[in-house]
């Protein structure tokens, strides 16, 4: 076991996969010489050389396009879009090109590519660097979408994403970059599409993603002292969503709360609620609750984030309400 932070766990994952498979390469803004705008690719240039770890121009559409064409012709690219807020500049390549190639041409092309990106939600960097836009890509057939909340998950999921033959949007969370965890030294993979029960409990199922997983776990400590045991489930993969694990939990607890950094309308919280309705409606004692930021852009000034985003206290309050 070695203590690793989330950022280094990701670097290790990419480093191991690049060593294992010469077809894997990494391209993006400042990924090579600088080792990543946030240090997310330190050491990779030295380890794998300038062709396989390459700085690109600030051209998001062609960065993703580079990955699309390379994947179609036998490579396993990892292309980096520094912040997910920049997806507006490359959505055509993601949605119309990467996502549809395998389908349209009936499997003639595999699309083994990872679009590595980041949400910097609650990092105080304003409306163009703070969004949690996983619904944009979760809505598109052909894409897989991963959003890990712990260092070990980040590593195991990144390795699986690189080995997957589909385009995978891998959303890392800047707010979690420095959290640490003991990770085994032996190789391991975490399968895409598999949720993880981060804390077992009998009373309320709390489905949370990214940063919210940690807030939910903190809330669980407080609630536990009141005798309320919540079960915290991190889907880890947004698409395909592990509905089975969520539904099995709700069948046991009969109550569910979904907590996300993304908005309610058309988002993951709504999707999870609908899935629970579809599969466990008669097991519910109360309607599924959703706890998300209100439907506004993210303003910059200090205090706005704390005001807008769910936190330990609001999760505790939402759970108490479900138990009332």
């Amino acid at each position: 076991m070695t203590m690793k932070n989330y950022c280094w766990a990701l670097i290790d994952a990419i480093n191991e996969e690049m060593a294992r498979d010469p077809d894997v390469f990494l391209a993006g803004e400042d990924v090579a010489a600088a080792g990543g705008a946030f240090g997310g690719s330190r050491g990779l240039l030295a380890a794998h050389g300038p062709l396989r770890v390459r700085d690109t121009p600030i051209s998001e559409e062609v960065i993703v396009g580079l990955g699309v064409g390379a994947a179609m012709t036998g490579k396993r690219p990892i292309v980096e879009i520094m912040f997910m807020d920049f997806f507006g500049l490359c959505m055509d390549q993601i949605v119309n090109q990467a996502a549809k190639m395998h389908y349209l041409y009936q499997g003639a092309f595999k699309m083994p590519m990872v679009i590595r990106t980041m949400t910097a939600v609650e990092m105080g960097i304003g409306p163009h660097h703070s969004q949690s836009l996983e619904a944009w890509v979760g809505h598109v057939p052909g894409l897989k979408v991963v959003m890990p909340s712990t260092p070990r998950d980040a590593k195991g999921l990144m390795k699986s994403a690189i080995r997957d033959d589909n385009p995978v949007v891998f959303i890392e969370n800047l707010a979690l970059h420095k959290i640490k965890e003991d990770i085994e030294d032996e190789e391991f993979l975490i399968p895409l599409g598999k949720a993880d029960i981060k804390r077992a409990g009998r009373d309320v199922t709390v489905v949370a993603t990214g940063l919210m997983v940690h807030k939910a776990l903190a809330a669980a400590e407080i609630l536990s002292q009141e005798g309320i045991e919540i079960e915290v489930i991190d889907p880890r993969t947004i698409s395909p969503l592990d509905v089975d694990t969520i539904v099995a939990s709700v069948r046991k607890t009969n109550r569910a709360l979904v907590v996300t950094s993304a908005h309610k309308p058309f988002g993951l919280a709504s999707e999870v609620a609908a899935q629970i309705m579809d599969h466990a409606f008669y097991d519910l004692d109360v309607p599924v609750a959703r706890l998300t930021p209100p439907f506004t852009p993210q303003p910059f000034g200090k205090g706005f984030e704390a005001f807008l985003h769910p936190d330990k206290a609001s999760i505790v309050a939402a759970v108490r309400e479900l138990m009332a």
């Binding site: 077809d23 390469f25 062709l51 396989r52 559409e61 062609v62 993703v64 396009g65 580079l66 990955g67 699309v68 064409g69 390379a70 994947a71 179609m72 012709t73 036998g74 490579k75 690219p77 055509d92 390549q93 119309n96 090109q97």
Partner: peptide
């Protein structure tokens, strides 16, 4: 829509 990914095909040739 096709122009960006032509770069990726060309880059495969470079890598190979």
């Amino acid at each position: 829509g096709g122009i960006p990914y032509a770069t990726g095909a060309a880059y495969s040739a470079v890598l190979n």
